[in-house]
Design a protein around this nucleic acid. Structure first.
Lengths: 166, 166
DNA sequence: AGGCTAAGTGAGTGATCACTTACAATATAA
DNA sequence: TTATATTGTAAGTGATCACTCACTTAGCCT
């Protein structure tokens, strides 16, 4: 699964054959099909951890109650991603263009938390603000995954400043 | 090329065989290879128009000189995309994750124009502001391509308001 | 030890892949 | 009209694809 994740994320699901996954993982090709049934289910086994990983990432935000702190922690969220998980999130972002694997529902807990926070901060349209900040997060995450964490630091500070934080 | 664009954008370059492109285009498969040489060159023929399309999209902004108007026009840019070109831009965004086809240089004219505009508007770090707004554009474009123009209208107004426009 | 299950393999399978080739139809120009 | 170049096609090609299958190996319980 680790090898498949690497190859799916950096080469592409359709571009990488099961024979290559098996070879680079150091197992026989047949084993893939014994374990996962078919290639698609291998991808699904990898993607199955998405919900858990998101919840783990959100945990620190969800338990925060101070509105300004909620916003601050959300902005810092993309920078808390473990570098070992970059491949996983890269795959996630790539598959966003596949309707089958794009599930906006997963972000709802964060949206809700942010909506309440922006409400507490007297923003005019809290839910719209929440959805907009989520998009900015998407943007920053994309940059981090493509150009590394350092490249996104100026943006982090700019966004924090725009929300009157830091 | 139109058929290939449709299929590459909505199914995926590696996922769609040349036989299917030929069938849906109503030509023989051999003709693809007579015209384009190979599958990759067919993709490149489609992508070749990127620079021209970007320049056309940027034209209205480049010739504007009033700083506030520059920012306003940039924010409205994603909404000026012709719906007939959605497939093309969808493909563009999909291939952003392929290093081979991601060329940030193409956005530089817009960045420069925005940097000057933000400078004129007394922003503290004009280039950073320019690159940040470009990212927001990216975000809004993504939303338009995935959920349609109407879904992005609230964001458009929010962003305009955040820059003190509209 | 023996018996059972799960894990793992290597050599296939037909289907499909990108691409080629030999040839036919059509347009162009004198 | 006729010679020539261009545009198009049908039927392949070997390579590679996802997947199967008969079989071996390894772990585990009694």
């Amino acid at each position: 699964m680790d090898t498949a994740l690497d190859l799916f994320a950096n080469v592409g699901y359709d571009a990488v054959p099961t024979s290559r996954i098996a070879r680079e993982a150091g197992v026989s090709e047949g084993l893939i099909f014994r374990h996962f049934g078919n290639k698609k289910k291998l991808l699904e086994a990898i993607m199955a951890s998405t919900e858990r990983r998101l919840q783990e990432a959100f945990a620190g935000v969800i338990e925060e109650d101070e509105p300004a702190e909620v916003v601050r922690k959300v902005i810092l969220l993309p920078f808390t991603i473990d570098e070992n998980e970059y491949d996983f999130w890269r795959l996630q972002f790539k598959l966003k263009w596949d309707k089958e694997y794009y599930n906006p529902r997963l972000m709802e807990p964060l949206i809700q938390k942010l909506t309440v926070a922006f409400g507490g901060l007297q923003y005019r349209d809290p839910e719209l603000e929440a959805r907009f900040l989520e998009q900015i997060l998407d943007t920053i995450s994309t940059q981090i995954l493509r150009e590394g964490r350092e490249a996104a630091l100026p943006f982090r500070d700019l966004v924090l400043a725009k929300y009157g934080l830091q």
